[in-house]
Amino acid sequence: MSANDPHRAGLFPHRHLLGIEGLQPHEILGLLDRADQAVEVSRQVEKIRPVLRGRTQINLFFEASTRTQSSFEIAGKRLGADVMNMQVAASSVKKGETLIDTAATLNAMHPDILVVRHHAAGAVHLLARKVDCSVINAGDGQHEHPTQALLDALTIRRHKGKIARLTVAICGDILHSRVARSNIILLNALGARVRVVAPSTLLPSGIDRMGVEVFRDMNEGLKGADIVMMLRLQRERMNGAFIPSVREYYRFYGLDAEKLAYAKDDALVMHPGPMNRGVEIDPAVADGPQSLIREQVEMGVAVRMAVLEALAAHLPNH
């Protein structure tokens, strides 16, 4: 497989990856196939495949994220790119003022790929319109986090051999979750049955028309599920604003062995991290035999290599 293979390039005809929305099922599957190969490469001693040699990748993070940023950094380096990390502290950003300025400044340095995380939905789209290089959305507000959904799909497919017709229960703070939105779109595109499980205050308006089955009772929602995907609950939402308390949330929506027993015996547990043990998930489940949480991190690097490689096929060669 070569990044410059025209057949391959045709499978992913996009200059940016701004979201799962707009991707065709075969394009998603193409990325997952690439990622499978990247997993093999990453497990070798010699991990470098220099398809991005000479290219400059900038990770522009307006929101701190050790996990996603290092994952993109390693992915870029394994493909031979020069990777630079830019942290823009949220406190120093006056209402997105520097977003356009930063875009213009960076653009003048001729990067080939920009990986962007921003706290506002749509910020990555705005930036993509202002720069000449490829842009990857590493999470924009509560909108999308496409590489997370891709790595989740890769993880599932490697264990279950397929995505179609699996029952996936996404549980927790759906309202504020970009991971949930990207996953709902991707899993539906690949034919999975998607459920969401959450208290009504943590469900977005119109959720019943988003292609999911909605459950407020977690035991009901987990019944017969193949995959249980937990979401992180942000601290500021725990004490009265959306739910009354952590202990009440944990009692009704925290994943413990008892609730997990309602899912299929071979059900797998996932979490995008970082986890709040004892809030949305019992440590025993998080670290138990059904958990894929650590493997998700490995798949994250592979998927990001696949995305970088797919976009590299569209980079100008001179």
Partner: peptide, 15 residues
């Protein structure tokens, strides 16, 4: 506007 459109866009809505 609050509703499905805002939900997909990840924006909080004005009901």
């Amino acid at each position: 506007n609050a509703g499905l459109n805002a939900s997909w866009k990840g924006l909080s809505g004005v009901p």
